[in-house]
Computed example of a mutant assay.
Amino acid sequence: MGAIEKDGYTLYCTALFFSPQGQLLGKHRKLMPTTSERCIWGQGDGSTIPVYDTPIGKLGAAICWENMMPLYRTALYAKGHIEIYCAPTADGSKEWQSSMLHIAIKGGCFVLSACQFCQRKDFPDHPDNLFTDWGENKEHDAIVSQGGSVII
């Protein structure tokens, strides 16, 4: 599950892992926030690169752009043969889906990539709202993030 985690005065883009009984197995903080994310989220330190042995298989994750970092994937694979590779993202492009196919083939694993879908109406009206001046996105039903989740 993706979450925004607060620790002290820093926010982290984080993936949380739970057992079938609902117990927290652990977490992974995104190593390097991408572009404007760096204004909001802190950097992970690499100590949380996870692979968890679960009843349905070995589970690991890379958050969004981490999937484009070959050395991150190498470090993840070195922790054990991942059978279920989770890739939460905000990128619903066809290129992203091609990358997920590549990871499934090269990693020899199933890839689950959850991508958010949201519309302008999902955000509150506020003068500081990031989506207030997005031209065509002023329409109440305008799509802000198009989704694009895949299971490969």
Rank of each mutant, 00 (worst) to 15 (best):
R120F: 00
L16W: 15
T132Y: 10
I56Q: 13
M69D: 15
Q43G: 07
F110Y: 14
N129V: 07
Y12E: 03
L112S: 10
H126P: 01
L112T: 04
H81R: 11
G2Q: 13
H126D: 09
G135V: 03
I151F: 15
M69W: 12
L25I: 03
A3L: 12
Y52C: 06
D122N: 12
Q116R: 13
Y77E: 13
E136A: 12
T34M: 09
C115I: 07
P50S: 15
G42L: 02
Y9S: 14
S149Y: 08
Y72E: 11
G22Y: 01
P55N: 05
P20V: 01
W134N: 05
I84H: 14
L25M: 10
D125L: 02
C109W: 12
A87P: 03
D7C: 10
D53S: 10
G26K: 05
S145C: 15
K6E: 08
C86G: 05
G135H: 09
I84M: 06
R38V: 05
L101D: 14
P88G: 02
Y85R: 11
G92H: 02
A87N: 13
E136D: 15
F123W: 10
G26W: 05
T35K: 08
S98G: 12
E139W: 05
A78H: 12
V150R: 04
T132G: 00
C115N: 12
P124S: 01
V51F: 01
G108E: 07
K58T: 11
L16P: 04
Q23C: 08
N137F: 06
D125T: 09
M32T: 06
G92M: 04
D141V: 04
P20D: 06
F123R: 04
C86I: 15
F18R: 14
P55Q: 08
R38G: 03
I105F: 11
N129Q: 04
Y12Q: 01
D141H: 09
A114D: 11
I103H: 09
Q116H: 13
G2W: 12
T89S: 15
Q116A: 12
G108W: 00
G107H: 03
G147R: 08
N137S: 09
A78Q: 14
K6L: 05
C86N: 05
L130K: 02
K79P: 04
T48I: 00
L71G: 04
D53M: 03
H81A: 11
C13T: 14
I105L: 14
G107R: 07
C39Q: 14
S145T: 09
F18T: 15
T132I: 10
K58F: 05
I63C: 03
L59C: 01
V150A: 11
E139H: 11
Y12M: 00
D91Y: 03
G107K: 05
E139A: 15
S99K: 05
Q116K: 08
S47G: 10
S113R: 03
N67E: 13
Q43S: 15
S149H: 09
P124L: 04
M100H: 03
L25R: 08
D141N: 11
C13V: 12
K27W: 12
T34A: 15
A61G: 04
G147K: 06
F131V: 01
A90I: 15
S113I: 00
G60R: 03
L11Q: 11
K27T: 00
I143R: 04
I4K: 10
Y12F: 08
R29V: 00
R38P: 00
F131I: 00
